[in-house]
Design a protein around this nucleic acid. Structure first.
Lengths: 337, 337
DNA sequence: ATGAAAGCGCTAACAA
DNA sequence: TTGTTAGCGCTTTCAT
């Protein structure tokens, strides 16, 4: 790599000391205007930029935040990342993105890797495995090091830090209520994420609403392996005389729509379908899917905001963790009455 | 942030010099086994990890690569990112991800931001605006600094660097050929990316094949704004008596499928549909979409490989840029005969 | 108004 | 076998 211009070289060429050059670049009032001008001129000429590494080492700040995601091919996380990125870059922060692919081991590895002065703080959602094992030593380690963390979506009660969550239970209730209001009596819940905290919350919400409506039935169907279980899903839909499907994740909803089409049911006349996560699949299904939007970009932006707030106001008196709940909204499209 | 343990502190506590501690940690043969053990023990106790910043400053290597993407909500780029991430993390590299959102200005900003000792090299795809303006000063600047670059997908001939591309023209030809073989005579090309280099190549491929088959007609329809042009697309499909659609991007193909469903055409009996990018939309459409897979993950992994190769073998005699072409494959599903 | 010097945490050539 | 020293590029305090 070509050597970049350094203060030292500028100083030498200008017959000044390094510190004078440094100060001039910052327009320090104790330097004469004439010198300042000379320095700037040469710096521009060489397109001088301070070495970020050296600045970081000195200041103990990297202006970088670590983002740990379980998945990137999932639209929700991609949107969150987008939101984080927008907000962070606006404030002059870079982001280092790590994808755990739902693995506990990788999550630990990444957290440790980034914790050695590479980032000023973390924004993270726990991996599926981490939630299952409930092993949180690596995150607690961060806290011991006083590294600010913002958790989102897949959070843990055991960690006392800033959080941004989606009110999944409420969202699910709203969705089911809407189905009931539009006349549905037998609702199927299909999900590929029954073992995730958010999946459980959504299911709970659905159950609660149904429990309050004695004339409405709920029937649950977990999908473990999308590829292999098409026939089972088909059978499930055919044989249960349902008039509505709540897909607890976008994929589940998409499958429900396609399966219904395939079986010749009319949507929403015969079967209404509601999904979660307003991603590509929801917008480009036929008919277009009524879905719960978690406003993922907003969520990401909020998470970034919270973290930056911590980073910039270190002097804060006492650390008291906040939890923000992002409002969801039910986007009505053509798959419901 | 809590102060991390440093060599200095370890040295003090052990009554050794900093350099002895440093060497011990590396199991340097010139240090006595006994000392090495003592040092390791204390280091473990404090969970000592070297400060990455200091190491980078010293070595002039950051073990980080910058990834510049035009988009992240696009499945293709998300998959590429995934591939890069996998490969890089395996080799102990971190990645800094920047999303330009197709903006030239942001692209320049990011490249400059990362170029000041934050990353060892770049993997990038040009933004739409950059390709339109054809302004490449920022990339050339990187080359002047001898920073290794690997461009992928959206590349530029003006830049002499390693590249990984998809053989879009060939892929498109294969797709159209397949349509013709299965009896299609009037093919519509729908695209939301007519102004991208890849879009142009795909179109060219289609035109070439049709030119060779005099009994086959081609008709083109560009989509500028997906939301607003549904009616036009509907009209287009209805009034042109087509029997096949080639969607130059995944969205276009999805729209074609849904529109055909809506209009009551049977797929593939009345209309065959082929798309590009084997993403979520292709897998979860009804019927399932026949599509050109660009093997995006593989592409990402290859790009990472090429970059790492450059980074690790600096001694390389002469820099001679390679261009690798990733094979595409036509994945046959239910939307074609 | 300018410069010398120390130090951020680490490595490595050289000295002892 | 261990320690001293210089230096990566920068900031900043304290002389001059």
């Amino acid at each position: 790599m070509r050597k970049k211009v350094t203060l030292k070289q500028l100083a030498k060429e200008l017959n000044l000391s390094i510190s004078t050059v440094s100060k001039s670049l910052k327009n320090d009032s104790e330097i004469s205007q004439k010198t300042i001008n000379r320095v700037h001129e040469l710096a521009n000429f060489y397109n001088y930029k301070p070495n970020a590494l050296a600045v970081s080492l000195k200041s103990n700040k990297t202006k970088t935040i670590g983002v740990i995601l379980p998945e990137i091919l999932n639209h929700f996380f991609a949107k969150v990342l987008y939101g984080i990125e927008q907000q962070a870059s606006e404030k002059g922060y870079k982001i280092v993105t790590c994808i755990t692919n739902e693995s506990f081991e990788k999550e630990v590895e990444y957290v440790e890797m980034l914790n050695y002065s590479s980032v000023d703080g973390f924004i993270m959602a726990l991996s599926q495995e981490t939630q299952m094992y409930n092993r949180l030593y690596h995150v607690k380690e961060l806290q011991r090091d006083d590294v600010p963390i913002v958790m989102f979506d897949r959070v843990s009660e055991e960690i006392d830090c800033d959080k941004v969550i989606v009110d999944d239970k409420y969202a699910s209730k709203t969705a089911v209520q809407y189905l009931i209001e539009t006349g549905c009596k037998k609702i199927a819940v299909i999900s590929t994420i029954f073992d995730l905290s958010v999946g459980k919350l959504r299911l709970e919400g659905a159950r609660e609403v149904v429990a309050e409506n004695t004339d409405v039935g709920l029937i649950e169907f977990p999908i473990m392996n999308i590829e292999k279980e098409e026939d089972e899903i088909e059978l499930f839909i055919k044989s249960n005389n349902i008039d509505a499907v709540l897909g607890l994740d976008e994929t589940a909803a998409a499958i429900a729509i396609n399966m219904s089409n395939k079986l010749g049911y009319r949507i929403p006349d015969d079967i209404s379908v509601v999904g979660f996560t307003d991603g590509l699949l929801s917008k480009h299904s036929y008919p277009k899917l009524t879905t719960v939007s978690q406003h993922a970009e907003e969520l990401g932006a909020k998470a970034a905001d919270m973290l930056l707030e911590r980073l910039e106001n270190v002097s804060e008196t006492k650390y008291s963790a906040k939890t923000e709940v992002v409002k969801t909204s039910l986007i009505l499209r053509d798959s419901t009455k």
